[in-house]
């Protein structure tokens, strides 16, 4: 029976350590792709500009048509209909006496609800 050779154990140990090192680095790299991609994707998916744009338009309506509830209601109907048709977003805006009181926005991924007491941006 051949005797077990105990020589060169250091070589094997080094080999192991370096193997683990490479494996660890590979996992890090692998994760880094996902991190960059998912971050960018979630930023793109979040309708930040849609909500900002909707708010600024509604704010403008309250200042432009303070004494013209008809025009304001017309514009709100436009926004509701076009949002559904073009952005697949459900928008509901409550208005009373020339003031917009509530904004509800839902595009299936993000929901945004706001009660407006004062337009402070």
């Amino acid at each position: 029976m051949a005797r077990l050779n105990e020589e060169g154990q250091w070589i094997i140990l080094m080999g192991f350590i370096i193997c683990v090192g490479i494996f660890f680095l590979a996992i890090l790299l692998n994760q880094s792709i996902l991190v960059g991609q998912t971050t960018a994707e979630s930023v793109i998916e979040f309708p930040k500009t849609d909500i900002q744009d909707l708010r600024s338009e509604l704010r403008m309506l309250t200042f432009r048509y303070p004494a013209d509830p008809g025009s304001m209601a017309d514009s709100i109907d436009d926004i509701t209909a076009i949002s559904l048709y073009n952005k697949a977003a459900v928008v509901r805006i409550l208005e009373s006496g020339g003031q917009i009181t509530e904004i509800h926005y839902n595009n299936g991924v993000t929901t945004y609800d706001e009660t407006i007491l004062w337009w402070n941006f």
Partner: peptide, 30 residues
């Protein structure tokens, strides 16, 4: 290991980058 790192980094960045460019372009446009 160095060769492996160098080769993978060049490949890795491409898919993530397009999303970041999209993001910047979208922000610029709005």
């Amino acid at each position: 290991t160095t060769v492996y790192l160098v080769l993978t980094t060049t490949v890795v960045f491409t898919p993530g980058e397009t999303h970041i460019y999209d993001m910047q372009l979208e922000q610029l446009g709005s």
